[in-house]
Nucleic acid binder design. Structure first.
Lengths: 338, 338
DNA sequence: GTGAAAGCGCTAACAG
DNA sequence: CTGTTAGCGCTTTCAC
């Protein structure tokens, strides 16, 4: 079986406690240089790796953090996980992944993960408007970092500046001369959805473009719903909008499909911009102008914050990430009806 | 702190071993019904949850399996993970996720995960043509299940019938009257790439359509490369192909973008079909005809197989998953030049 | 500087 | 039927 401290100790002719001291580089208790070297040699020779489980039991800390996501087949969440995994690995933590659907009423998930001592802390990625979440945090006794949304009662939240992102997108359209700008908004009550809507509204107002609520459609985050809403909107318009600002990548793409189907050329007749960049923005025709959001960074920062908390450091209770940049592509162009 | 066996035992007025017996439902040693009930009551009252770490140390089994993926921001891998997580959770296993890039030469990853006793077994998702992989398995002493490819020396591999999938796609095009069918193939040497190419070739041959190697372009798996290849191919063709069979979803989309840019209407002039379905197939214009592959199921079957191995059961050394079905959409249509 | 020993929470013989 | 006991591999006080 795997080599243990005892194996190393026997081979080096010392006690296991000495080996342990050397391995953990204990500052308070010095070990003779010769002994230390001998032990190090044996460790290398036997390729000894400490048993993480035994250590976890002894220290009551597993050096594992859990990440709970609402869904996996969503590039945004996947990027968050990637960022978290990277940061965790760098700090010597492992990442336990767990999945929590809104339907499966698994209100015990957090407590199970935690009380069985599997994880030292929790990263929870939230859907925009999952209210159940807050209740489920009750009675969980490890630090939790919330990702993708602010929750007042939680001690640390990492999220995007969606307000700013929306302004970037909207200003881009205004700069191009657009005045009739449709907003395909996320689900009502959603944290990011609301901020994006506000950012859109304020960007218009600040630049002297009248804000018309009739141009806003709450479509949620599904491509299909965005496609339908776009069709309805266009078919019932007296004066055709010249641009669409979609709250997410998927809804932007859904809108584009409808425009294609109706034979409306982009960006000649209508420009489209969405929030969240992805490789998929490049496979669309025309390639989609987006506001790139630092999703990986969000996962990374959250993991770093959690590990900081676990080492007793203080962390900011809110970490807000600014949008990376406007990715200028071919779906937006100057307004021809200006 | 968390309640322990001792807490329960004290409260119920019995020994901890008795509590342990009741909780693990030990068949060999019976416990008096009254005692059992009393213990169960206390367990519920104190909301006792066994300490997984202590159990893992004692049993030398963590009930955790690791999954190693080459990248996360890829819907195919995300679906595999989702399937694996689900199955693992159902069997009472946790999933430790780990990331292994081809660049970061982390040949120690597997051994580290395993030797520190974190995981009882490993699920390894392979890129199509990562040869390094096989060496890195050396010296890993837990069961490994390989996903997405067959490796002769490994005891259990779960993968798609890519050959059949390619035939489905190709036959579909042939049925529509196409004869000049381009194949955008995956990277040379790739397991799935080769099977798809073979499936394409054999489908043509079986139906009496001449196989012309000049119609095959090895473009790998990047949308951009597929887009470029498509452009070059079309521009240099004397006789225009009437259909494109792309080895993956992303390359199909890349080809579509090029066709759009060249003003070639789909499916009127050229039909396009790809392997691997995703929500993204529906946001393309036209919506993309695909062969849906059971990615989730692949993850699920792999996790089940691994857990079976861990419980000492025998499992098939190869689990081959058939393509789910052809998802007929708007990117393919009858050949007009027939 | 190094060793001895206790104990993290649990399971599994072995007694009784 | 139930209790006693010996560890799993490690860290950490306390001795010497």
């Amino acid at each position: 079986m795997a080599t243990t401290l005892a194996d190393v100790a026997r081979e080096a002719g010392v006690d296991i406690s000495t080996v342990s001291r050397v391995l953990r580089d204990d500052k308070t208790q010095r070990v003779a240089a010769r002994t230390r070297q001998r032990i190090l040699d044996v460790v290398k020779k036997l390729n000894y790796q400490p048993n993480a489980v035994a250590r976890a039991l002894r220290l009551a800390r597993s050096r594992t953090i859990g990440i709970v996501v609402p869904q996996l087949d969503n590039p945004v969440f996947a990027e968050i996980i990637a960022g978290a995994e990277h940061a965790a690995a760098e700090l010597g933590y492992s990442l336990l992944i767990s999945h929590r659907t809104r339907s499966s009423d698994d209100s015990d998930l957090f407590r199970r993960l935690v009380n069985t001592n599997r994880v030292d802390g929790l990263l929870v990625v939230s859907f925009d408007e999952d209210m159940q979440l807050i209740q489920d945090f009750q009675g969980v006794e490890v630090p939790i970092v919330v990702i993708n949304r602010k929750i007042e009662s939680m001690s640390c939240c990492v999220y995007h500046n969606s307000y700013k992102a929306a302004q970037l997108a909207t200003n881009h359209l205004i700069d191009l001369g657009h005045r009739q700008i449709v907003h395909l908004a996320g689900r009502g009550g959603g944290f990011n959805a609301r901020l994006r809507w506000n950012g859109y509204r304020d960007a218009l107002t600040l630049r002297g473009v009248p804000y018309d609520e009739a141009l806003v459609r709450t479509v949620g985050y599904a491509a299909e719903d965005a496609a339908t809403a776009t069709r309805v909107l266009i078919e019932n318009s007296n004066v055709l909008p010249t641009a669409i600002f979609a709250a997410t990548f998927l809804t932007a793409a859904g809108a584009m499909r409808s425009l294609h189907e109706m034979g409306i050329p982009m960006p000649d007749e209508i420009s489209v911009v969405g929030i969240h960049d992805a490789e998929f923005a490049l496979i669309l025709y025309p390639t989609l102008t987006t506001v790139r959001m630092p999703n990986r960074e969000m996962g990374r920062r959250a993991a770093l914050a959690l590990c900081d908390i676990l080492s007793g450091k203080n962390v900011d209770s809110e970490i807000v990430l600014e949008p990376e940049q406007l990715m200028l592509r071919n779906s937006t162009g100057p307004c021809r009806q200006g």
